[in-house]
Write a protein that binds this DNA or RNA. Structure first.
Ligand SMILES: [Mn+2]
Ligand SMILES: [Mn+2]
Ligand SMILES: [Zn+2]
Ligand SMILES: [Zn+2]
Lengths: 147, 147
DNA sequence: TAGTTATTGCAAATCGTTTGCAGTAACAGG
DNA sequence: CCTGTTACTGCAAACGATTTGCAATAACTA
């Protein structure tokens, strides 16, 4: 399993880009920050290692990774209006967002694809991408609420 | 079929609110503006009837309608970061957004609900709401692109 | 080791939306 | 109708998330 840092390095090499210390720190943060962080969350993590790094550098790096197809930006409702960044997995997947703690759970379901094709047939529209997001309470927040 | 204007009127009456000329114009705009307008689109429409109406009044009215459960706000990816407003239909439904002309097509599919319950069982999370959005090209934009 | 230029930090701009405030106009009651 | 109370308005300024212009810096190349 190749890390984001490795993928980005290869990408940079092939286009005359430069691997800066800031980029390395951001990429390493993304690699160990498991889930679906906001830019602020990445920024907070990265600042622990380099106090002088700037939020706009974080954004520029994230947007570059997005352009290169190495991560994708997602915007969930019921989660303010900030973007969350998702390491691009090899397979399509969908999300559950806990409205309380903002935890994201990924899942997949075979029926989703067939819903798309049945919609395509009925509407004659061409589907290019799918966003399926469930909102609710994760197991933890449910039990926390009962108390 | 009761119009939004009628529903809002009833709601206002029951809570000491006032039916102003601005609200009437906005509600009438929403009633004939068929689909899923942004606040700006509503604003542009109402300005034709009342030059002096203010964008913040449009927002305040839309948010009030949202709170009253008469419309809902939706945020689609690939559509900038503005909200779109959806007259609350009696039944749950889902959306297709044309990435080119921003037309919205509504649809439903019986399998969607069973996907939710199967996710609930596997994850032990409690699903409260669902957002299912397809992105792609509507029939019109497809043929326009072929030429 | 020096030169080219991609990348940075910073501050200011942007975009969609919200808010504080003083003035205006609904509408209830006389 | 007239009047008083106060919900609602327009305006301007604040907002949060993100983007951008620019001059200084630091990767890489040769
Ligand atoms: Mn994901
Ligand atoms: Mn709709
Ligand atoms: Zn939770
Ligand atoms: Zn279209």
């Amino acid at each position: 399993m190749t890390t984001l840092l490795q993928k980005a390095d290869r990408q940079l090499r092939s286009q005359g880009g430069r691997m800066t210390s800031q980029r390395r720190i951001i990429l390493e943060a993304l690699d160990c920050l498991n889930c679906h962080p906001t830019a602020e969350e990445v920024y907070d993590t990265v600042k622990l290692r380099d106090q002088s790094i700037n939020l706009s550098t974080v954004y520029r790096t994230l947007r570059w990774l997005e352009q290169e197809g190495l991560i994708s930006a997602r915007r969930f409702a019921e989660d303010g209006r900030q973007d969350r960044f998702d390491p691009m997995l090899p397979s399509e997947h969908y999300h559950f967002l806990c409205t309380e703690c903002k935890e994201v759970i990924e899942f997949d379901h075979p029926a989703i694809e067939s819903i798309c094709s049945s919609f395509e047939q009925n509407s004659r529209a061409a589907v290019q991408s799918v966003s399926f997001v469930l909102y609710g309470l994760c197991p933890n927040c449910q039990s926390r609420r009962k108390n």
